[in-house]
Structure formats: structure tokens, C-alpha cells
Design a protein around this nucleic acid. Sequence first.
DNA 1: ATTATTGATGTAAGCGCTTACAAATAGGGT
DNA 2: ACCCTATTTGTAAGCGCTTACATCAATAAT
Lengths: 342, 342
Amino acid sequence: MGKTRSAPTLNDVAKAAGVSTATVSRCLNSPDRVIEATRQRVMQAVESLGYTPNFAARVMAAKRSFTIGAIIPTMDNAIFARGLQAFQDQLHENGYTLLVSSSAYDPEAEREQIRTLVARGADGLLLIGHARDAEIYEYLERHQVPSLVAWSYDPEAQRPSVGFRNTGAMCELARSVISAGHQRIAMISGMTQGNDRAQGRVQGVRQAMAECGLDPSALTLIETAYEIDKGAEAFGRLMALTPRPTAVMCGNDVLAAGALREARKLGVQVPEQVSVTGFDDIELAEIVSPALTTVHVPHREMGRKAACELTAMVEGKSEGRSICINTRVVSRNSLAEPPIQT
Amino acid sequence: MGKTRSAPTLNDVAKAAGVSTATVSRCLNSPDRVIEATRQRVMQAVESLGYTPNFAARVMAAKRSFTIGAIIPTMDNAIFARGLQAFQDQLHENGYTLLVSSSAYDPEAEREQIRTLVARGADGLLLIGHARDAEIYEYLERHQVPSLVAWSYDPEAQRPSVGFRNTGAMCELARSVISAGHQRIAMISGMTQGNDRAQGRVQGVRQAMAECGLDPSALTLIETAYEIDKGAEAFGRLMALTPRPTAVMCGNDVLAAGALREARKLGVQVPEQVSVTGFDDIELAEIVSPALTTVHVPHREMGRKAACELTAMVEGKSEGRSICINTRVVSRNSLAEPPIQT
DNA sequence: ATTATTGATGTAAGCGCTTACAAATAGGGT
DNA sequence: ACCCTATTTGTAAGCGCTTACATCAATAAT
């Protein structure tokens, strides 16, 4: 006490308890392989020295980190927050820690983050969406790090994934829009480049149009980043069109919130003059006014299931199955019949 | 080629390039200490083997991780998102990586996370708010990990901090509320237990009331978690009061958004019947309707400055200074004069 | 020509931990 | 009493990297 000591090591604990480092290690990692009395003595030493194991050393020696990495496109909005939280909670329950980093929707940055996470000893990786260089998967294979794709379900893809059918979900929503009577439909999509979810959603709208006898190529499409301001700006451009679309379907709730904000600014009544829809059903969807008609994604369920599947893969209990999460359309006030034709 | 190899190590690279491991290490870490020709040869080997340094080994040998840890109360809403993003960007610019984890506003969980981050070799830690056991600071000192407090500025506190005056900022906002004519003021605060920011904001309101000749103890106060639903619920309770408060000041924008949602549901007109204010000025504040009168916190500036100060501390260039970030009241439509007294 | 100086590279000692293996101890069956 | 097995603990070899120090060659200074 009083003396400036630096952090205690396993060795210090071993000495204090009068045992070998191996025994201390066992006390910490497999307590049942050590006799009760010894363990008590060791734990007491641990306690009184305020010992915390050095993670780097542990990873290095055990070649196992009980850490899962996740690379998400952005932390800037709530799109991934809820699902990730559930993912983390479940991971924690399974005895793992989560390391998150974001790629800003940049493939190069994502590659970088993947390398970083692998170098940090992640036992497994959660990736968002399928679109990705094959080289990356080879890299992961070489390092023997299992990976799981989330936020997208695609039975065609060879990689295991836990997610939902973006195309199908959006198609269903588009059908409601069309059956409300809309014919001039516009879409504000996220950037589809390298983003299979955004692509799927656009395709979903087109598919519904085709099914319902509308010309899919007549869809007015604006691609922009998933930001509120961008959604607002895109909506402004759509409203300047003649004739105006009567329904604006947005790639997600964030874009839709931006659209709503701009509508208010422009004095455009939603849904009386224009209907707006979102995707994801994050909290935002219920807060904005009018509340958003959108696609509800059970993020928590997805997060939990992804966590279970990925840990199973890490522990060699699964080869990597794909799980499809069901979405459903949620009807709120932002969608109504189109105004009477003039 | 073809053979299943496991991940290459420094040694493999050294052999491939025909040099010693030391030289490879130098190529990677201080390229100027190695002659051009050698470096080229080494880099080529690195490239062709697809070598990624093992982080754990590096940390262990160098006793330096170029990693900064941050423990934030929650990732569930956008309160910390923007500031943290700026923090990370600046950190990256300074050559550091950020590790984030969240404590769910639970001191015990925070302690746990701090230990984890330290064990993982974080060179420095960003903590939110001052309220914290002294024991934790001792632990950090023993492990020689510098820490910086953010989101709160308190010249009284002994710990360095980069943040804003919660009390002062809220006081200023409360003054606008009072000078708009409000006398029956209620507040929906976050849990003040162990949260100096929440405490400061409550105190700010009280202080303004006292200054303006109102009785501070007449403040109707509801404490609740920082969640939209909780804000809505609290607002509902306030509206059931007789007489009703004419202004509801919320501890942050999230609570205010909940209040607004409930107001709409109850058919209470904002601001005609009741005024509502927020705190933080996150994106949400501009999206809800009516848009929130709130306190603008320059989160990005705070994040950047915190990153610079903390890296300076880590590198021994600073003893840890405190920096005060200036906030300002933003007037939007959710605050107006109270209705004519009945 | 000789020595000092500088710069590039190699050698090898750890960093703190896990774990295969060896050793020691304690019962249990005969 | 003896041998065998099971249990607990110790010994020591790494894990992949950095870095102090040693070595060696090349250039500059005398």
C-alpha cells in the first residue's frame, strides 16, 4: 500500500497465493479442475491484488478471444442500433464480447475493418449484406474466422445469412401502395452500389408494379445516401416534377423522415397530397407526423438469432445455416389514397 | 498455392523476404529505419502472403495498443452518436482506433467495461460524466491508463474533462421559457442518480426559477429513463395534473420527442396549450413537429477536442486539461407563450 | 592508410498467459 | 502391503511480436 506498483500479473498472484501460474490460470478458466481450498486462496490473492488478466496475452496463448466482431455500415442513425443491441445481449449471454466498427458504406473501409478485427483475434465476424469481394471471404477462410451475413436473407447466396427478404418485403409494401390507388410512384433509395439490401428494395417496388400491371420502368428513382438531409433534398426534387408522383416510397425510415420534414417545409400535405412510406420501423417511424407506414423488421429477433448462429459456428457446432426473418407491413397515417386526379 | 495454409506470421514474411523478423517489424512500424530496397522486398512478401500482423502479439510486445476505449451509457439513441463519431474520426486522424462499449447507465456494468477495456490494452479511456467511484480512478492510475471525462464540464472536479456546463445551459433555456411567460413549469428529467449531467440540468431549471422570482421547489419533477416511451408516459402523467403545467422542459430531446408523441395522442396542442423543450439538438429535434426549442450542443467539436486532448495525455504531452464547450439555445416552434389563464 | 562515425540489419530476450506433459499425492481394490 | 487409477499441482514450452544491443559494412574524417 502506498508504493506505486504497476499492474499485477499472473505471476504476482501465483506468488501471493503460493502456487504456480498454471494453477492460477486454472482457477480463472476452469475452476473445477482445482481443489476448493486452493481456489479460495488464489481468488483471495486475485482480489487483494486487484488483478485483471491481460487480454492480449490470453488471446495469444489460447488462440481464442471469445470476441465477435461486427462491421456495420454506419452508427450515425438508429437503423442498426436495435438489432446490434440484441446481438450483443445474446452474445454476452453466450459468453462472448462484441467489437463493433463502422465502414461508412465504404467497401475499402470495410475490408480494412475486417483485417483489423481479425488481427485483434475476433473468433467470428458479423457482416451486413452479401455484396462483397470474394477475396475477403478467402482471407477470412485462411484465418479460419467464420463469418455470418445479417440484415439480408438470400437462399441463392453461398454464405450463411440471418436476415429478411428485402425484395419481398418491399414488394409487399408496394402492393399496398398500389392497391391504395397510386400509379405515379417515386422511390428515394439508398445507394444501390454494392448494397444488396438497397438493390433488393428497389427491385421489390418494380416487381410489385409489374405484378399490378404498371410499367416498372416508369418508376422515378432517386438514389442518395441514407441521411435525413438527403431524403429531404430528394423529396424536394420529386415535388418539383410535373406531374408529381402521388406516392414516395423511401428506402428506409430515415429517408422517409427527411421527406416528411421537407414536405412540411414545402407545405405539401402528407398523406392528403402525397403518400410517403419507409422501411425498418425504427422508433422514428412512430414519432414523425404523420406516423410512417413502413415495413416492420423484427430487429431484436434477427440480432439474437444471428448471435446464436454465429457462436455455434465459432464453436464448430454449425456449418453456418441461413435463417429467414419474417417482416410485415405496418400501416400508419403516411399512406392514403392519392388525391383526386385533376 | 492450393495448400490450406494457416495465417502467415512475421517469421514467414521474414523468410520469404530473406531478412530477419526485426527488419520486417521495422518495415512495418518505422519504415525510415530500413533501406528502400529491403523495404520493397519485404513489402512484396507481405503483400503476396497476405500478411496481417497479430494485434495481441504486437500489444504485448510493444506495451502500446494505439487503441482508445470509450464507455458510453447507451447506444440505443442518437445522443452520443454524433459526438462519438467525431471523436472516432479525430482519433483515426491521430493514428488511434476506438473501442466502444455501453454501460446501460449501470455503474457496475461501467466498472466491468472499464476493466475489460484496460485488459484489452486501451492506451486511454473516454468516460461520460464525472460521477464515479474513486476506486475506479485508482484502478486506472495503477494501470497507468489516462482517462478523460466528456459530455460534462466541471471546473470543480479534479479530473480533466471536455464538455459543457449542463447547469448553465439548462438555466439559460429555462430563462427563455420563463420570459415567454411560463410560471407553472414541469420537468421530465433523466435519472439523476449517479448522473451529474441530469443533476446539472435539473439544477439549471431551479436556478433560473430562483433568479426570476419563482419558487424552485414548485418545480414538478419526474425522473425517468432516457427513452421515448418513458418521455411519453411522463408527459401523460403531467397532463393529468390540475392545474396543468404550461411548459414541460425535458432532460433531452429523446424525452421531448416522447412528450410530443403523447401530446399528439392526447390531442394536446403544442405549443398552443403546452410548451415543450428538449436538450442536445440531435437530428430528432428538427424532425418532430413542432420542431423542438432546445439547447444546441456542438457534439462534433466536443468529440474532436476530446480526442485531441486524450491522445495528448496518452502520449504524455498533456497532464489533462479541461475544456469548456459552449452551448446555445435554439428557438423553434415547440416553445411559445402560455395560453391565457382561465 | 587508419580510425571514428553513421546506418542497416541480425540476435535474442522477453511481454503475460495457456496447456501438454510430468510429477506427486491420495484412495481403492486385491 | 502392493499396484493401479484418478486427481491435483507444477514445469516449461511456446503464442507472434518489439526492441535493446551486437554486429557489420560503408562512408567520412584524420
